[in-house]
Nucleic acid binder design. Structure first.
Length: 437
RNA sequence: GCGGCUAUAGUUCAGGGGUUAGAACGCGGGUCUGUGGUUCCCGAUGUCGAGGGUUCAAAUCCCUCUAGCCGCCCCA
């Protein structure tokens, strides 16, 4: 017995009417990004494995255990098999394209956004899929283009606040029980601060880690920064006494962070500084941030995350090109909007054309064609339907019904009925479009 | 990757070894061969997730698998 074929684990089909919400989210994002001077970039979903190993970091969970990676087949003896990977995130790909196309040589600041699928092989859950969608943006360029400016950090954060506002996601406040979006940020220091701090952390952890939970003992070895955002109650006191990142920031980094916060204040973007906020990707430097929401996502409450990556370009063999970016979990954004249950009125078509008898089918389709070209949304029934059925279907999908029968053809007039008012009248063809508006 | 819960009609769910598996919504039809949205009357919903086992008998009990969900890990 053959089992039926299904979408593979962790992937899913998106169907109407839900896709209308995806459209709205993407259209809103494009509109906001355009106003901030961003242009769209589309990079391949397939990249050389090495890009992620070097960019995202060999030791990160993403690279070490979550990537879809395989050896591409060598087609000729002279060709070498190459290790390929379905992109688990998009920043590395964008920076690779920036380097490959020598965008830095333009001397201009690059503002790029993308919308597309990403792939990570994790255990699926609500808000966490193996193929998931990210909407992201990157600001990157040579230092002389101003790419290192704290103004860029603040601009990106303010843009995100605007986007969430325009999408209708509430800000966390007392009145909504802090269920709206919340921005948390931190500075993890420059490319030299960060290793210094990690070394200090390792040193501090060495004598006390055996007192901690199993997870934290492992983290102390593999990724000491992660110990900081451990949720283990018993370990909190020990964690509080660990060195603070703020004490390892050089003056430039401190100054940079202070300017970001000042600009956020000036723009009225609410935030919380969390000195323990660390992000899982190796490339982050200085400003890191995440937006969380409490609605609809369970424990997957990180709606988007991002940060500065001043050294990423060099890590993958490019010129110095500081940058800052973010990735929004589009799936999570959709879930949040659905949970907010601002049930938008169901969109109905302008009219439904009901041909009376199959001999009217051709005329009905021609009429539909004309009305559609006039900008109306139209559905056409079938002449074999009884009129009662036509009315039922029409009432479900459209605001008005247009009846096309022998009487109408004979008289040259068309019968139109509006479902909301119940008003029915016979009108001339040329008045039709206006009546249906 | 680890631990737990779940899988029955298009949808949301009830049923818990014994003939033919139920409700609501939705769907089809009728009262009405040119009139919907509210009524009224009929009807069909289905390999009970897949495979195997126990039993005279399995949707029901057991095992395996698959998928979803919850928590962890981690992240968007």
């Amino acid at each position: 017995m053959s089992s039926t074929l299904k979408a593979v684990r962790g992937t899913r089909d998106l169907l109407p009417p839900e896709t209308a919400l995806w459209d709205r989210v993407e259209a809103t994002a494009r509109s906001v990004f355009a106003r901030y001077g961003f242009g769209e970039i589309r990079t391949p979903i397939l990249e050389s494995t090495e890009l992620f190993a070097r960019g995202v970091g060999e030791e990160t969970d993403i690279v070490s255990k979550e990537m879809y990676t395989w050896e591409d087949r060598a087609r000729a003896a002279s060709e070498k098999a190459q290790s390929l990977t379905l992109r688990p995130e998009n920043t590395a790909g964008v920076v690779r394209a920036y380097i490959e196309h020598k965008l830095g040589d333009t001397g201009h600041l690059q503002k790029l956004y993308y919308i597309g699928p990403q792939f990570r092989r994790e255990r699926p859950q609500k808000g966490r899929y193996r193929q998931f969608f990210q909407i992201g943006a990157e600001v990157i360029g040579p230092v002389t283009s101003g790419s290192e400016s704290p103004l860029r950090d603040a601009e990106v954060l303010e843009m995100l606040a605007t986007l969430l506002d325009e999408l209708g996601i509430e800000r966390a406040s007392e009145s909504n029980g802090y269920k709206g979006w919340k921005l948390t940020l931190n500075s993890v220091g420059s490319a030299t601060d960060r290793p210094r701090y990690v070394a200090a952390l390792r040193e501090a952890l060495a004598p006390i880690k055996h007192l901690m939970c199993e997870d934290n003992q492992r983290r102390a070895e593999t990724n000491p920064l992660r110990v900081l955002d451990s949720k283990d109650e018993a370990d909190q006191e020990l964690i509080d006494r660990l060195p603070k990142i703020a004490d390892y920031l050089d003056d430039d980094s401190k100054n940079h962070f202070a300017q970001v916060l000042a600009a956020l204040d000036a723009c009225g973007v609410p935030y919380t500084v969390n000195p323990r906020l660390v992000r899982g990707l190796d490339y982050y430097t200085r400003t890191t941030f995440e937006f969380t929401v409490e609605t609809g996502l369970g424990t997957q409450n990180a709606l988007l995350g991002g940060g500065r990556y001043d050294g990423l370009s060099e890590m993958i063999g490019g010129p110095k090109a500081p940058g800052i970016g973010f990735a929004i979990g589009e799936d999570r954004l959709i879930l949040t909007l659905q949970a907010q249950a601002t049930e938008a009125a169901e969109k109905k078509l302008d009219a439904y054309i009901a041909p009376m008898g199959v001999e009217q089918n051709a005329a009905a389709l021609a009429l539909a064609r004309d009305l559609r070209r006039e900008g109306l949304s139209i559905e056409v029934g079938d002449g074999s339907f009884r009129l009662k059925k036509s009315f039922e279907v029409a009432d479900r999908v459209a605001r008005s019904i247009v009846i096309l029968g022998e009487n109408e053809v004979a008289s040259g007039e068309i019968t139109v009925k509006n479902f909301a008012t119940g008003e029915q009248k016979k009108i001339a063809r040329k008045e039709l479009a206006e009546i249906l508006q």
